[in-house]
Design a protein around this nucleic acid. Sequence first.
DNA 1: TGGTGAGGATTGTTCAACAATTCACCGATC
DNA 2: GATCGGTGAATTGTTGAACAATCCTCACCA
Lengths: 234, 234
Amino acid sequence: MATSEGLEAFSDLRGTLERSSTAERVADALRERIIDGALAPGARLSEEALGQALGVSRNTLREAFRLLGHERLLVHRFNRGVFVAEPELADVVDLYRVRRALELDAVRRADRAPEGAVARVGAAVEEGEAAAGRGDWWGVGTANMRFHQALAALADSPRTDEVVRRLLAELRLVFHAMAAPRDFHVPYVALNRRIHRLLEEGRLEKAAEELSDYFDVAERQLVEAFSEETEEKE
Amino acid sequence: MATSEGLEAFSDLRGTLERSSTAERVADALRERIIDGALAPGARLSEEALGQALGVSRNTLREAFRLLGHERLLVHRFNRGVFVAEPELADVVDLYRVRRALELDAVRRADRAPEGAVARVGAAVEEGEAAAGRGDWWGVGTANMRFHQALAALADSPRTDEVVRRLLAELRLVFHAMAAPRDFHVPYVALNRRIHRLLEEGRLEKAAEELSDYFDVAERQLVEAFSEETEEKE
DNA sequence: TGGTGAGGATTGTTCAACAATTCACCGATC
DNA sequence: GATCGGTGAATTGTTGAACAATCCTCACCA
């Protein structure tokens, strides 16, 4: 065991080294397509066609479908196939309810957050500012997700991280279903900066308050956008 | 469309009618065995042997494994097989962290809970009292889980329900790993009754306080039991 | 004692097949 | 003209077998 000193430096490589199964890689690829809108909500995914396109067998593809089904990105209708999920108004409300509980809790206990966690929140803020600067609205959206993921990480809880990651992925689906996602995210860049500053100053309760207000505003905005959508359809 | 009135009455049947896939039924069966301890933490599940025993093909069984893996009841080690999860001390702490956030939030907003939700909490309390009366400690544990599930349901949020259900299932795994699960749950029956009464009286903040204390005590008790366990092993 | 292969067992993945189910189409009926 | 019922193609659900890749054991050797 004399040679086992300083091995902690390699622990970061673990994730990289772990080969993943084909099903997981397929799931990753599909998740990307769903999140960036290449696969629209409601679209049906044929086992045969997709399997051929991706070069994997139906069985493997079905495993990938199961993974994404659990993330609520796909819905599996028995004997009917899998479809890209179509979030409804109720889903939007529900997503915000859970986010509120988890993210606010994470912010309130940020004093016990792990080393560097607040800094990662700041990094996400800057990423968003940079994207906004070059007019990359999709990039702003991505940075925004990363910001909230970083907020959740303040709880120092793997399960919170996982749940929030799923919620945010689902939320991106909602953005595709709404009318004008283009300038939804941009206004919040400044707010994110403010929340990060409060975190740095240790004013956690104030930060939680601002975050709570954000949830109110964003949720209402989404709900309204959604109501208009459905009105148009009818 | 003149005949389509009053069809809402049938919407309850939807769930009953939906046939489930073989994989899901297999997953249900395995989940039961894991939760009631028939499959001990750490046990390895052979695809071949289990498939034969259950009368399903390896492919189908693998689908079921994926489902339970997402619930963290099984861990899937690449090229090595699936094992019943072995929760560690860190998992106990993490489980309570997320439960605290979600259940407390649910209790605090119980004034907006759906019709009959508080009554279902009461039903779980009585179930626990009945089980305690006849000395059925396992039944007390089950009722306790149902009590907390009912608390979570106060949030009126499908996603909260799902997450909490998963957390509680995982928690049962923890009980198997600890020394004396026999009389762990019984002392909390009285507390549950108290919390229910506070909910009925609308004293939500007080109820949340009691619940928070419960989390403190239960978590510490589990952590201690766990530390002893690992000491014995070494 | 500690390293090293060889071999057996298990998983990862594919393929082909068949049963079960859905869906769209089309004619029959009132 | 709308509804009902049935036929058939297309798709999913599930199985079983096959083979490659990987891991584990254990005897063997320095």
